[in-house]
């Protein structure tokens, strides 16, 4: 997946790169920027940060519910890119997918290690909570994307949605989710897979420039299991 560039990042980031420099980098696609990062071009990394820093920070903060820890994670994710950008393989997926995946893993790792970080324990809180305070100006396209993804989540059966959100946004393991939801571990595993497949089917209909949605697929079978 290649996500569109976040123009808000360009506006609200104080970059050391001159206006001309920003123009120069903003004309390059992710692959070209990654190649430049590999060569030690700091401006290219800042250009990637302007594009994706905001969704990375939003995800990390969602998982960690702590601004400082979220900043730690985002900072270290981009410095990981800086240290070894050549590990990104464009043949295997988009840069943003790789970056957000790394952000997720590091944030989940942090939430499990830092006892001071509050864990999210209810799916309802994950799905419906809006931010506590005023948000900065929203990008229209990101609002659209968020709306569509949330709509896609709503097409999932409650149990599947709960399993996915507790894992993805809550950083819980399958066994923890089984305990939280009083569900056999094997059923949690089944729900996660079914939810991922169904979500992919719905999200396949989402593009950045259209409003078309695929019709939700019929409810997949979800046979409760009693063993892993």
């Amino acid at each position: 997946m290649t996500l569109p560039r976040s123009r808000s990042g360009t506006d609200d980031t104080d970059s050391p790169v001159s206006a001309h420099g920003q123009d120069r980098y903003d004309g390059l696609d992710d692959r070209a920027l990654v190649a430049r990062v590999t060569g030690g071009d700091g401006g290219a990394l800042e250009a990637l940060y302007r594009r994706y820093g905001r969704p990375c920070y939003g995800l990390a903060r969602r998982i960690l519910a702590d601004e400082q820890f979220a900043q730690d994670v985002v900072q270290e994710v981009f410095l990981t890119v800086w240290r070894d950008a050549s590990r990104f393989d464009p043949a295997r997926g988009g840069f943003s997918t790789w970056l957000l995946s790394m952000t997720h893993h590091k944030a989940v790792d942090a939430v499990r290690r830092e006892e001071s970080v509050r864990r999210r324990t209810t799916a309802e809180a994950l799905e419906d909570r809006e931010s506590d305070g005023p948000q900065v100006e929203d990008e229209v396209w990101s609002l659209m994307r968020r709306t569509r993804v949330r709509e896609a989540l709503q097409t999932l059966p409650d149990a599947q949605r709960q399993a996915l959100t507790l894992a993805y946004f809550g950083g819980h393991t399958q066994r923890e989710i089984a305990g939280l939801t009083d569900t056999p571990l094997g059923t949690v595993k089944t729900r996660m897979l079914a939810g991922m497949r169904r979500l992919r089917g719905v999200l396949d209909g989402i593009s950045d420039t259209t409003t078309a949605h695929d019709s939700p697929r019929p409810n997949s079978d979800e046979t409760p299991r009693t063993s892993p």
């Binding site: 996500l3 969704p55 939003g58 995800l59 903060r61 809006e130 931010s131 929203d138 968020r146 993804v149």
Partner: peptide, 9 residues
């Protein structure tokens, strides 16, 4: 990666 965008801005 799509799901990441469900987080509030």
């Amino acid at each position: 990666a799509h799901l990441a965008y469900a987080a509030e801005p």
